[in-house]
Computed example of a mutant assay.
Amino acid sequence: MSDEVIVVDLGLQLAAVAGFVLLMVLIHSSGLVGISRALHLHDERSIPNEFGLRAAALMGTYGLLLFVLHFIEILIFAVFFRYVGALRSMEEALYYSASCYATLGTAASNFAEEWRLVGALESLIGFVLIGWSTAFMVRTLRKIID
């Protein structure tokens, strides 16, 4: 393999990662705004002022919606991996993507080398998005507890 091919492959992977960063920030911020609106978190009167059944239902719904948001983001990566032929099946792509996103680090033995940097950097993207969701949820919990 020539140096020119390696540079092109690296540039293509970095461009894909940059696109994923932008896409995931847009999806995640829109998702958090949507969750906030759906649960009326902007209205202080709709947030319980003590931790009881109503607060537990709110937080349970919140957690479920966050799970769906993260699954959508994982699915987008998996579709990409499948589309570029980095993995053979959608199940394998979902497993690999979820593993990367959640920073578990399970490597797929037959993952295409030319896309492995995207897989590795999915971990960084997932780490940031999970942290963002955690901060958002803690903020809501603080409103209930305070």
Rank of each mutant, 00 (worst) to 15 (best):
G19H: 11
A102P: 00
L75H: 02
L94C: 11
P48A: 11
E73K: 06
E122G: 01
S109T: 01
V128N: 03
A108F: 00
A16K: 02
A55T: 12
L58G: 08
A93C: 02
P48D: 11
A78P: 13
F136L: 13
E91Y: 12
N110H: 05
V8E: 15
A86G: 07
Y62N: 05
L58Q: 10
L69S: 05
A18M: 13
A120S: 00
E4T: 07
L64E: 13
G105A: 03
S30M: 07
L26D: 00
L65G: 06
R54D: 02
L141M: 15
I72N: 02
G19L: 14
V21K: 06
F81Y: 12
S29D: 06
V21E: 10
F51H: 13
V79M: 10
I35F: 11
F51D: 14
G126Y: 00
A107E: 01
Y96K: 00
R37Q: 14
D43L: 14
Y62C: 07
L64H: 12
S123H: 01
M90K: 03
A78L: 04
L26A: 02
L75N: 07
G63M: 13
V118D: 01
C100F: 05
R82Y: 15
R82W: 15
G34E: 02
V7G: 03
L12E: 09
L22Q: 01
V128R: 03
I76C: 12
L14D: 05
A16H: 01
V7S: 09
N110R: 01
G119S: 10
L94Q: 08
I144D: 09
L22R: 07
G119F: 03
F136A: 14
L10Q: 04
L104S: 10
E44R: 15
L117N: 03
E92N: 01
F71E: 14
A38P: 07
L41G: 06
L12A: 11
H28T: 13
A107I: 00
Y101S: 01
A93M: 04
F71S: 11
F80V: 00
D9P: 11
L75R: 11
W115E: 09
I76W: 10
L66A: 14
V68W: 10
L129W: 12
M1H: 09
L129Y: 14
L124H: 01
H42Q: 15
S29L: 10
N110D: 08
F81E: 02
Y95N: 04
D43Q: 14
R37N: 13
A15G: 01
E44Y: 07
A135M: 08
A38G: 08
I125W: 09
D43C: 14
I76Q: 09
